[in-house]
Simulated assay, not measured.
Amino acid sequence: MRAKLGDAVVAEAADDDIIRIEGNAYFPPDSIGAGVLSESPTPYTCPWKGECQYYDLSAGGETMKDGAWAYPHPYPSAFDRVGKDFSGYVAFSPGVRVE
């Protein structure tokens, strides 16, 4: 599975390595392209997943503010709900093609 911003691939992982949560594909941290994410100051805390880290996404000459997010330290109860540890896994905003 790939995530693309424009024509640039920003993440690539085997389908079995993707974790799906609430309709979003979360990519393992090591599948994210080098240098495509930069931390955003946008705050958000999910009531059941915990504190979220947003990222600005840059690739192929394009930049998307808050184009990706992850939960670096999800609530332990979220692991039970999802069925896996998804710490640091990255999902992408609409506008990033996941195929």
Score class of each variant (00 low, 15 high):
T45L: 11
E22G: 10
W48F: 01
Y26A: 02
V98K: 08
C46W: 04
A91I: 01
D15Y: 06
S58R: 07
L57W: 12
S31R: 05
P94V: 07
T42Y: 09
V10E: 14
R97Y: 07
D85V: 03
S40Y: 04
G95E: 02
G60S: 05
A59P: 00
R81Y: 10
C52W: 03
D7R: 13
R97V: 09
H73D: 12
Y71W: 02
I21N: 14
M1W: 11
Y75F: 15
P94D: 09
T42E: 11
E39I: 15
Y55Q: 02
K49C: 03
Y71M: 00
A25P: 09
G83L: 08
G83D: 12
Q53W: 09
R81Q: 14
G6H: 08
A59Q: 01
L57E: 06
P74M: 03
L5M: 11
S87Q: 02
S58G: 09
H73E: 15
E51Q: 11
G95P: 06
I21R: 07
M64N: 04
P72H: 01
I18Y: 14
D7M: 10
G23C: 07
D15T: 07
S77G: 08
E12W: 07
E39V: 15
R2N: 11
A34C: 05
V96C: 07
R2Q: 15
L37R: 11
A13I: 01
P43S: 12
A11Y: 08
T42K: 06
D16G: 14
R2W: 10
F27Q: 13
D85R: 10
A78K: 07
G35M: 01
C52L: 10
A3T: 05
F27P: 12
L5I: 08
Q53F: 13
R20N: 15
E39R: 10
K4I: 02
I32M: 09
Y44I: 00
E39P: 11
V36H: 07
P76C: 02
M1I: 10
F86Q: 05
Q53L: 08
D66R: 00
Y26N: 07
G33P: 12
G6V: 02
F86H: 04
Y55R: 01
V90T: 04
P28Q: 13
G88I: 04
A91H: 03
A25C: 13
G6R: 05
C46Q: 03
A25H: 09
R20C: 13
E22Q: 14
V96R: 02
P74H: 06
I21C: 13
I19R: 13
Y71K: 02
I21D: 14
G23S: 15
D17T: 07
W48Q: 00
I32K: 06
C52Y: 06
Y75R: 11
R20S: 15
T42A: 14
F92P: 05
D30N: 13
A14K: 09
A68G: 03
S77M: 07
D66Y: 02
G23F: 07
T42C: 14
V10L: 11
F79A: 05
C52F: 07
D15S: 10
G50L: 00
D80T: 14
Y89G: 04
A13K: 00
F79N: 09
G6E: 11
P47D: 11
E12H: 04
H73F: 12
E12C: 10
A3C: 06
C52N: 06
E51M: 09
L37K: 03
I32R: 08
A68H: 06
A8L: 07
Y89R: 01
K4F: 11
E39L: 12
A70V: 03
D16C: 11
G6C: 04
Y75H: 10
V90E: 13
